[in-house]
Computed example of a mutant assay.
Amino acid sequence: MEGVKPPKGLILSGPNQNYSKFKQMFLIYIDAAGLTKCEENRKIAIFLNAAGEEAVEVYNTFQSKIDTLEGLIQAFQNYIEPRKTLILNTYEFLKTKQFDGESIDHFITRLKILAKKCELENLEDRMITMLIILGVKENEIKECLLREADLNMAKAINIARQVEKGKLHMSKLQENENVLTIKKESVINCNRCGKQHALRACPAFRRKCAICLKYNHFASQCRNKKDTTNSRKKVMAVQEQSDCSSEDEVVLSNKESRVTTRSGRIIRTPIKLKDYIS
């Protein structure tokens, strides 16, 4: 039919791949041009002429003989599908990053598995090396790799492992230091039992004081002990003074009182002078 033209330019690879659209437009052309009943060899020739040089080169790689347009369309379809998968696999490989908490060995294993699906051939080691640098989490590893001359995959893996091992060792040392610090800080000088012990491990807990009869401290640490002792001293002093007669000699000073009894015994008491002037 005059004025009806076949589509031009079949693109089989890259982001502009257009096989599905080209196939649809070519089948429309065959119907519109009245070529549905023509010989299959002619349809194949028209398809390849419209598709272009890249399609012809791909056609020449097909090992089985193709006798129909339907067979040719299916052959190109089979060629396109793996290419799509290859592009997706390559995309997944190139965007691979180390996960949080993922070890270097696990990260490199993922890279190697994805690389095998990308048909990188001689470029595989170099691409894995580059993605180790780009995808590793630790900046310290990146810096060490970038400083290395003649870096290859084996060197990159070894360096990354050594840096990771060193950081793990330092982390464990820091944890041990923190544990020791916590243990050291948890030992206190207790004013309830008079001893050193861990926090919340006082032996006086729930124990009854023999002086004030209250709980949670020993008598040796009782706050009422001093007041009780002073009261006892004052009581004893008053009792001794009451034993003295009026004829006993009393000597007063600013520091103490001294009483000499008839028997000649001298009593000294730490009572201030003002205590007698009242």
Rank of each mutant, 00 (worst) to 15 (best):
M1E: 05
K95P: 02
A160I: 00
Q74W: 01
D100A: 07
Q174V: 03
K43G: 06
S64Q: 07
E39T: 02
K172S: 09
H217D: 05
F22L: 06
D275C: 07
F205A: 09
L86S: 04
G14F: 10
Q74T: 02
L145Q: 07
Y29D: 05
D248A: 15
K116F: 08
K137W: 01
A115Y: 11
T85L: 14
N224M: 13
K5G: 02
Y19P: 03
C212G: 02
Q74P: 00
E247F: 13
K43D: 06
N191P: 09
R83M: 12
K155S: 13
I182S: 11
T129C: 14
N18L: 08
I133T: 06
G166S: 15
I266F: 08
E247T: 15
R265Y: 08
N16F: 11
A33D: 13
G3R: 12
Y29M: 02
K112I: 05
N122I: 09
P7H: 11
Y215F: 15
L146K: 14
D67L: 12
G101D: 02
E92I: 01
A75Q: 05
R223M: 08
S13V: 08
M127T: 08
E249Y: 08
A237P: 08
I73M: 11
I66S: 03
A50I: 07
S171K: 14
L146R: 15
I108D: 01
Q74D: 13
T90N: 12
V179Y: 04
E256W: 06
S242I: 15
R126P: 00
A154E: 15
I159A: 06
C38P: 01
I73V: 13
I108V: 15
E92H: 14
L12G: 13
K255E: 14
F93Q: 01
S231Y: 08
T85M: 12
S103A: 08
G3I: 02
K195Y: 06
E92G: 00
A198E: 10
E102Q: 09
K195W: 00
N189M: 03
R206I: 06
E124H: 03
N139Q: 06
